[in-house]
Design a protein around this nucleic acid. Structure first.
Lengths: 340, 340
DNA sequence: TTGTATGCGTTATCAG
DNA sequence: CTGATAACGCATACAA
């Protein structure tokens, strides 16, 4: 094998012009005779077209960029699986970049993608306020963008999210049905839109049952990481608490909290029922399993991908797709213990 | 903005030839005067070179492919973070593909990468026997390959692994020091090389202390997934057991087992000490935290990436890099309860 | 040091 | 239906 065969090699071998081979490859009109000869030549030479050249010629990249804070996030991994699934049916690949690689925010790679026109579109998971410059740059470069579960109000981009308010309400119903009356909520960072929505749903849901969620029963954590949940746990459990149920802003926080609780001998759910949000796989792995609000993450990933391709093909109207959530009841919630 | 500026636009604007601009971009010799004019033109036009065109011209792809069974694997995510870290210093991007997307093995995308010459090299995480056709195809296409923690004997590729035998021995020492004499090992799939090595290290380590690991005390699970660990737990715990410590083939198995154990009221570590392998982040999140053998996964990911680039630059000798492991003692191991 | 010409592998446009 | 030929955007011998 001297050199990789190109379309020209094939053409020469089949005794036709390169343009004919190109047409053959792209399913255009070619006579049966030529078709056969070209097919033979391709098989004989083991020819495969070059993506790079093809992309240069038709002016696309054949890649979409997927952006996330850190790729070792169970929630994101489910989204990613959905994207990959959808992508596997198309002739496009996935480029990945984490924004927070060594503990600090560094979006340079993504800016490089945008400037160098390496991607046909962008999917951003959980975009926050700090992603604004990124969005601006992409928008200016006419790059279609889909955000999944944006944690702040975004504009001019496509959105795939889930019904956090409904999720909060579902939790309220569940806890009330179990008999809880004293409930505490601890969300993520103060400005997190997700937490606000989840809290709103919870509050409204409780209000339906004439239960008021006092503002003193609402906390927020430093981040959405387990460590923040643990930290909250330490301060919360240090003081005596009257609550019988605790709703955390997401599963990671809940898991971090639970570890501390267990460490201190607080029995879940006997002493305290706990609920999370997201339904990450590990929640089902512990005992007690974590009661949580599940998002159809895989499907959301697929939807994001589909939406992006529609936007690439036809820069149409912006759209927000909202997915329903569902309560997954495991062992971390139960009837409150009757108080003496 | 009518059209994206190209290198020609810049050249015209700066009053020089395109080749001069190209040289400027690639840091070759250009007179100070020309340099300044080109820089001005670039800034003015907001020009950025096209990666696609550049790659076509110099005959590379600017992408490496990263392959894994499923991307929602905590171990892999750490490896991935390392790869990304190393990549961030180079002008190369990362393409990702999961082999097992909808529960079934489907390597078509990767074959497409290889045939279409979309990547400059391949990193394969945990390759198994079934990956052989893939390796063959890549090798035939002259594509450099690095495997991380291959789970079978591989040849003709670069390897980054960790010292599983040493890990097994470390576990043996730890358990013996605690006073354990009756130890059970449950590995992954029967032919898994990792499990074999870990078991060998354990056996040899115990032998140092004149403790024999009976073949009846060695089991294997269907897979490396938590569900398999849970399944093992159900059958193992159904029968009375004399062992005071259990070593599982990896963390996922250990977590699956622990859930079942806790569910059945078996107290860890009081009734049974448990050890895993890998040190995935969730192991530290539970209570009791999982004692385990840590691999420097992040560093291994970086090493794999570095090795791949060396191989791309100069197809030199094959190399195996082996990293040391370290025992991480948490709460799942303790002295055995004195037997009556 | 700079400019000219040619190549990288495909696709697209037109005549034929 | 087919075949030249010009893009696509950049890199690089080679000549000046």
């Amino acid at each position: 094998m001297e050199h990789k065969p190109t379309i020209a090699t094939v053409a020469r071998h089949a005794g036709v012009a390169v343009s004919t081979v190109s047409r053959y490859l792209n399913g255009r009109y070619v006579s049966r005779a030529a078709k056969a000869r070209i097919a033979d030549a391709i098989a004989l030479l083991g020819y495969a077209p070059s993506w790079t050249a093809r992309n240069l010629s038709i002016g696309r990249k054949g890649c979409i960029g997927v952006i996330v804070d850190t790729s070792d996030d169970p929630w994101f991994n489910q989204i990613l699986a959905g994207i990959e699934e959808e992508l596997s049916t198309r002739d496009t690949s996935l480029m990945l970049s984490s924004l927070e690689l060594r503990g600090q925010y560094d979006p340079r790679i993504v800016f490089e993608w945008i400037r160098g026109r390496r991607v046909d579109g962008l999917i951003i998971a959980k975009s926050q306020r700090r992603e604004r410059p990124l969005l601006h740059a992409a928008l200016k470069a006419q790059l279609p963008i889909v955000t999944v579960a944006p944690d702040e109000a975004v504009t001019r981009v496509h959105v795939v999210r889930c019904d956090n308010i409904g999720g909060g309400a579902a939790v309220a119903n569940h806890l009330v049905e179990l008999g809880h009356r004293h409930i505490v909520f601890a969300g993520g960072p103060q400005h997190s839109l997700d937490s606000k929505h989840r809290l709103r749903g919870l509050t409204e849901g409780l209000a339906q049952h004439a239960i008021r969620l006092d503002s003193k029963a609402v906390f927020c954590c430093e981040s959405y990481e387990a460590s923040a949940g643990a930290e909250f746990g330490r301060t919360f459990l240090d003081a005596p608490f009257g609550a019988t149920a605790l709703v955390m802003g997401n599963d990671a926080l809940a898991l971090g909290f639970m570890r501390v609780a267990r460490q201190r001998g607080v029995r879940v759910p006997r002493d305290l029922s706990i609920v999370g949000f997201d339904d990450v796989p590990v929640g089902a792995l512990m005992w007690p399993g974590l009661t949580t609000v599940a998002q159809p993450m895989r499907e959301m990933g697929r939807a994001a991908c589909r939406r992006l391709f529609e936007a690439i093909a036809a820069p149409g109207l912006l759209e927000t797709i909202e997915y329903p959530v569902s309560l997954v009841v495991r062992e971390s919630t139960a009837r409150p213990r009757p108080r003496k």
